[in-house]
Design a binder for these strands. Structure first.
Lengths: 348, 348
DNA sequence: CTGAAAGCGCTTACAG
DNA sequence: CTGAAAGCGCTTACAG
């Protein structure tokens, strides 16, 4: 029985058979701490010892396990970025900017999409906290972030971007949605429009509300009473936005100009307008690629997504470096870029 | 001295004063393992005990430290994605698709840009390995990935996307660059063009070479000898591409059509062509937003970035689930989308 | 210059 | 149903 006893096949699953510092130490005939010194480039090792350790490292294919290191050191040198959708072109430059700042501070970026779902946002954020990210940059989907209080109290640096946190006091970096929208709408008014439509994102999203507020302010400043049918908030998918656009452009008294609340809306509105024979003026919030090459070019209120990300990430690392400033609200200016669509006079 | 001895101010830095399972156990008056059971939803705890533990958890604001968990369990439930540039719109849908698959498998995504720099790629990949990601999805910048051999041997699942690995045998998912480019160029030839330019990415990039090969194949199939001045490979920044475009369009015998090697090139070429009075035909590799609304619409060879990411990630998790298939090369088809610019006849 | 011991916060394998 | 001990792979604080 002894001889024929079946031995376990495939003893380990996979993974886990990686060499450790202990293995390296044994092979090099030195203590564990000496290996640690070599691996971390600490001083106080003879060149000869160092060589022996290095040889063992190479022979074994050793790579330090940062999970263990992190456990001991406390900081993970990683930050989390939670945004709405990695695939949205608006977030590309923002993510990249956050990544560059993180890189400059030796940190990695863990990225996740909330899909504009508050529950998914919370799930993601808390998963990142369990991983003990040093900090969080969050583009919030929800409007109640009290669930983050214990984490922030425990030292997780946190900065919100694009939209403020809900029901907690935290740093936030945003664009001047109100001012940008007001200027964009005022621009349309200056070109003779009075019947101006506003198509925006869902009303629970802060920027949607702020931009609507800017629209109303511009109209009021010009003494133009706003009609309910001129305003449409909701999801920004092509179907919803396309219908809203067509509704505003139909009927006996159609709008002569449209203010589009973000890049997704603008793209769909441009598409609808392209199918029309009469000209309708358009100003969109957010710049979009190739907007300058359309006929007419699309006039936009541009925000600087990269700057938004950079500012937030720098603020985050300042928190991590121990700055204990009170939470601040940083608002970046927008820029009106005239390209033709916003300078069209009212039709008829 | 005893009474007036200065006590340490701010005893801990920040962080690190988080409650642990031990704290929870002490407060609830139970053993460590019982806390672990409750936290992980394991069976075998009386409702009453569970309640006491849960109260301690809430009171202390305890959140399990996954770093410690990972160290013990071996798997980190995270995967790394290394791409060229998070800000490039081509990678947005790809990243999002990888994220969705990871999420379905309970894993987080750690993301990084190589900036098309082989050294930075290696640095990033190895940093991810040190974090012990379970797997890697890599859009390679370099052409030698032997540095990954020990990692792969140690069990790090690896899939390359968009471009194959260099000097190692690994899974790769790519679009049919050769076939796509050949079809696109053949399309121009079918519309009467013979003097056709090719503007592509740097020659060390696999897709650039494959698309150039497709161009040459189409020309050869049609019996058209290719002149050196018709081909230009290099960085895809607007300056370089703009100059290349103008050079091809200048001189006594300018090209009558251009094949653009990727989305970055297409955008710049479109811009140059917009400033011209004579029509020049254009087919671009990669679809771009709003391409259908330009005049003329931009004819493209589209690849499915999301499908690329999804396929790669699924393959990755199949590896992690223990599938031991031999490394495979998966090629996804491209699709020619006719919108006008590729159907223009030769000028003159 | 070098190393043995303790500990980071969990899970595993056992024992009661 | 419950818990004490050992261990994951490192770093820290000391001692020689």
């Amino acid at each position: 029985m002894a001889e024929t006893a079946s031995r376990p096949e495939r003893p380990e699953p996979r993974y886990g058979n990686r060499p450790t510092m202990k293995d390296v130490a044994a092979r090099a005939g030195v203590g564990l701490k000496t290996v640690s010194r070599v691996v971390n480039g600490e001083p106080g090792v003879t060149p000869d010892t160092e060589r022996r350790v290095q040889e063992a490292i190479d022979a074994l294919g050793f790579r330090r396990n940062d999970s263990a290191r992190v456990l001991r050191k406390g900081r993970t040198a990683s930050i989390g970025l939670v945004l709405e959708d990695l695939a949205d072109p608006f977030y590309g430059p923002l993510s990249r900017a956050v990544e560059e700042v993180a890189r400059a501070h030796g940190a990695l970026l863990i990225n996740g999409s909330s899909a504009e779902d508050p529950e998914r946002e919370q799930e993601l954020v808390l998963a990142l906290c369990a991983r003990r990210v040093d900090g969080l940059v969050v583009i919030p989907a929800g409007d109640d972030h009290r669930y983050l209080e214990p984490e922030i109290a425990a030292g997780v640096a946190t900065v919100f971007v694009d939209r403020p946190a809900g029901k907690i006091d935290a740093d936030v970096v945003l664009s001047d949605s109100f001012g940008g929208a007001r200027d964009g709408v005022a621009h349309l008014i200056a070109h003779g429009h009075r019947r101006i439509g506003f198509i925006g994102d869902q009303p629970r999203i802060h920027t949607a509300i702020e931009r609507l507020r800017g629209y109303r302010a511009a109209m009021e400043d010009a003494g133009i009473p706003v009609e309910e049918e001129w305003m449409s908030l909701g999801p920004t998918d092509p179907d919803r936005v396309g219908q809203a656009t067509e509704t505003m452009l139909g009927g006996p008294e159609p709008v002569t100009a449209i203010f589009a609340g973000n890049n997704r809306v603008t793209v769909t509105v441009v598409r609808v307008l392209a199918g029309l024979t009469r000209p309708v003026a358009l100003v969109g919030f957010d710049d979009i690629e190739l907007a300058d090459l359309l006929k007419p070019g699309v006039t936009v209120v541009a925000q600087d997504a990269a700057q938004l990300g950079r500012t937030a990430a720098e603020r985050l690392f300042r928190q991590l470096d121990g700055a204990s400033d009170a939470p601040e609200r940083i608002e970046l200016p927008t820029r009106l870029i005239k390209r033709g669509s916003g300078e069209l006079p009212p039709a008829g």
